[in-house]
Design a protein around this nucleic acid. Sequence first.
DNA 1: CGCCCGAAATGAAACGTGTCAACCCACATC
DNA 2: GATGTGGGTTGACACGTTTCATTTCGGGCG
Lengths: 340, 340
Amino acid sequence: MATVSIKEVAHRARVSVGTVSNVLNGRATVAAATRRRVLDAIAELGYVRNDSARQLRAGRSRTVAMVALDLANPFFTDVMRGAEIAAEHGGVNVMVFNSGEDPRRERRHLDLLSQQRVLGVLITPVDETHDAHLDGLVERGIPVVLVDRGSSSFHRCSVAVDDVLGGRLAGDHLRGQGHHRIAFAGGPFSLRQVADRHAGLTAALGDGPPPRLVTTSNLSVAAGRNAGREIADLPADARPTAVFCANDLIALGVLQEMTTRGVRVPHDVAIVGYDDIEFAAAAAVPLSSVRQPREQLGRAAAQLLLEEVNEPDTHQHRHVVFRPELVVRRSSSPSTRTTT
Amino acid sequence: MATVSIKEVAHRARVSVGTVSNVLNGRATVAAATRRRVLDAIAELGYVRNDSARQLRAGRSRTVAMVALDLANPFFTDVMRGAEIAAEHGGVNVMVFNSGEDPRRERRHLDLLSQQRVLGVLITPVDETHDAHLDGLVERGIPVVLVDRGSSSFHRCSVAVDDVLGGRLAGDHLRGQGHHRIAFAGGPFSLRQVADRHAGLTAALGDGPPPRLVTTSNLSVAAGRNAGREIADLPADARPTAVFCANDLIALGVLQEMTTRGVRVPHDVAIVGYDDIEFAAAAAVPLSSVRQPREQLGRAAAQLLLEEVNEPDTHQHRHVVFRPELVVRRSSSPSTRTTT
DNA sequence: CGCCCGAAATGAAACGTGTCAACCCACATC
DNA sequence: GATGTGGGTTGACACGTTTCATTTCGGGCG
């Protein structure tokens, strides 16, 4: 109840508040005996520093914030873990906020963060195009790093994965397995990720027939089931022999619907997903998937942010792009044994 | 760059700082014309309130923290969503921290939170028994609500689910399906959840043979695969005809291993999981599972916290226990069609 | 003995708010 | 004209730190 301040510590240790502060901040100018007295007093009183007062004085916090698009998607929790590791390494704390794809929630969080004068913000924004709020932060001296978004802006750093390449990897693989009728399942195409992955697939197919499009309204498992139903209902001779999904959640839905309807995977239809979340390898038919370096993504984002925080003057904004990697499992390769 | 304070706003609007503060806090005593001038000045200068100063003055933050055990587990993100909804409703912000089952990380987060004088803490602690740090928070006037932990302590509220009942539901169901040789897969038993679920199953089996134990070292998919291998390798006449898993992740691992080894689910072996995470319904053989009211859990926790925050004097600590519910899908019932 | 030096400790100022008693002033009342 | 009245506004203080110029003090040196 009784909140104890530095003043009471000073009184109990029979020193001035300045000295207590010096002890707390590890300055050299305090004698060993005095330091001892102060530390004892702190322990006896159960004193805890008041962060608000520190921040007020310092003008800035020691914490960065991460605003995630959807923490229910395992992809983002992995990115988060990477960011936490890097931030921890740099001696700053991370607090996480979840926008849940709701622009108003995102807006509320950002307002709070600028009031808190956080050190910086990692964000996967809900709406990629309309980011006036982010510019507002930057104007107030709060660096922003975009995560999993190619940045159109030069006001900030960004980290992303080359999704066109990812689509191409999937396409090359499926062609190499002898597939010609290939479908793409995913949506909406307003998401850059979806459009890029589709473009990569199309490019890989070259002068062959373009992929059949099975559009979904979002990237959930339920949407994948709908897509799977649509595909399974096609007459066998028109049905694609392979499906590349914009996302592992979609792929899981497609897979489930195939199994339910007696379409064998990979014998009748091969499936390749995207993200390589943990549940991809754990599916009843282990899922081939284009792996994104999720933790590395988060780590790189946090490092860019720290760099900008520590050297605001010399800092040059950068846009880091990672290369994805195809992981082949049984869903697209009959001969493959389970490998995890 | 130039951080603008309430003083400059006051100067520009030709009023005193007190008046600006009154406008900001919506007091009635300020004339319409004056309010207008102040608001204009705020807009022109791009003024943003300094939260540190407000907190310092108020002595307390307007934010609660949630410290999750493992955000990579979909269970916790669902709980989080529930808590966010309730907190939002009560007009407080939520920030999320992830301990990742690391006691040191948890400790660091809690230290930070007490320095920040947060309004309250929702936490699923790493170690249920050793919670001196939590008592420390409570002593400093920061209410703590335990999530998904039956509380042994009377110093705080808690919300949990009746896991013994959950185990019993699963056991009754499997017996009703005519199973007699039933196994329990999960561990470690030091987790109350695991022990309770096992106890419920055992109780449901009554005077029949007790469940065969397949112990795992943790609750991940990989651990489930090991358990599944162990079960599949048993001679068919000794093999259990049903497996109740401590967790959906375990269940997914068991399921995968069964399918790989040609053991048909549910024909040869029935499976029931626990939690009913989204991926349970999406498994290639949709998984029966004991559903916990995850969002409701989070909501209740946040409500208890708000109650304690708003009425510290009259507040009585409570321990809310929810009833789980069995969701039957194909993995334990051959006749069931997929229902989501 | 006087002087100076450096190490150690001090105390006041400042950070940006919210609060609240005091004040101002126009107007109504007697 | 003196006295209220009450809506609007003010200004000083307090919150808990950190910082830094200043003070104190013991002792070495000339």
